[in-house]
Design a protein around this nucleic acid. Structure first.
Lengths: 223, 223
DNA sequence: TCGAACCTTGACGGTTCCTTGACGCGGCGC
DNA sequence: GCGCCGCGTCAAGGAACCGTCAAGGTTCGA
């Protein structure tokens, strides 16, 4: 099911969008301001974001920039201002489309379909990392030069670690990112999967040089 | 240099766009009607297309569909009609954005930057791929040296896979690209059609070497 | 009207992956 | 030395996923 995150400070507008989107079989998440929108997007990444620019607190363009740091999710901006300058600012901040209020629901839905049609819209911005003799490409989910198969969970863990190169990632954070809320205590998962990743990628799995354990803290990817 | 193809039947508008785009260091190609636009796009594939809907001869939406058969190039539609219905038709035909005349040049340029920013926008659909004893030509929808019939759905799936050679394509993405929004859960479609493609193209369908499955992740075309 | 090609849908068996528990090892404090 | 705790390893059961097949439904043209 396609997830759409709708951000608007007016409950009426929020509700109207939610009803229309759910009628088209989209899964809808809502947020009333920018901070909660970023929390929600971090929790369960949406496939698209519909964002009202006129938010209290965090500015709409800042929300776009914050989203862009971690993902390439398409963003459609709603705004009451039709001036060209506003559109330029929002689009250059990273928005994918700009719709002026009042708008037709059909037009918004068509624009939503247009941005969702793009390839790789749900894939996180990934880089690549060198581990042992292997180069892993997060975007393409490939390992070169020797093809090695990783399971979906292994890819997710590796993605989180590689996106914070050299920095400690707590077990809690890892469990939250990969398994979601409610699994923060299952540290044995991490032991099992980190062992698997080392066995597949590290030159000497017993003495890892890139996928390191910080006892009592968490794990760290060392480039 | 980024190539932009501008299609408009009014020479004045064409010239205005060309001057503004070239001032921003874009390379500009122009066409006065849909047929010549398609010829030009086939000759030297552009990185983006700016298309006036009100063309003589070939309808604008048909131009979009024709472009979409062969490439994923971003298309920005210009139109004098601001009705929501027209926008829906154009966007669903495959347009990426819709700008109503009269428009601000800065807004158009911002939208152009927005569509060019997305990844892989310049990758053509064309080309061919070797699978088993067969060479499939995506542009001509033919298989050599032995002609093999593929159904429309099979062509669409194969196109998506071959466009990302060596990279993983999630089942979600495939379903979204081929069947559109609302079908993301019907993974059995993929099982049926991938089996069909392997039976027709792979040397040993039971042990595919080019149309690979990544369990839990998706599928991958391995050249 | 009929038939052919294509698309959908469901069911079944085999494979892969996730989860879970048990065990061993090493460090640390007592 | 002894027990505790965190971590690495391993194996088994169950769940989820995939390949395959066949039947029903739809569309399109003869």
């Amino acid at each position: 099911m396609t997830r759409v995150l709708v951000v608007d400070d007016e409950p009426q507008m929020l509700r109207a969008l939610q009803i229309n989107l759910e009628a088209r079989r989209y899964t809808v998440a809502t947020a009333l301001d920018g901070d909660r929108a970023l929390d929600e997007a971090a929790e369960t990444p949406p496939d698209a974001v519909i964002l009202d620019l006129g938010l209290p607190g965090l500015d709409g363009t800042e929300v776009i920039r914050a989203l862009r740091i971690r993902s390439a999710v398409p963003v459609i901006v709603l705004s009451g201002r039709s001036g060209a300058a506003d559109k330029v600012i929002a689009l250059d901040a990273g928005a994918d489309d700009y719709v002026t209020k009042p708008f037709s629901m059909n037009e918004l839905l068509a624009r939503l379909r247009a941005v969702l049609r793009r390839p790789a819209s749900d894939e996180p911005i990934g880089g690549s990392a060198v581990i042992g003799d292997h180069t892993v490409d997060l975007a393409g989910c490939t390992v070169r030069p020797v093809p090695i198969r990783l399971t979906p969970t292994e890819w997710r863990i590796l993605t989180v670690l590689v996106q914070h190169p050299g920095r400690l990632v707590t077990g809690r954070q890892l469990l939250l990112d990969v398994w979601g809320p409610g699994h923060e205590r299952k540290t044995n998962y991490l032991r099992v999967y980190l062992a698997g990743l080392r066995r597949k990628l590290e030159r000497d799995p017993a003495h890892p040089r890139h996928l390191l354990t910080e006892p009592g803290m968490g794990y760290r990817f060392e480039p």
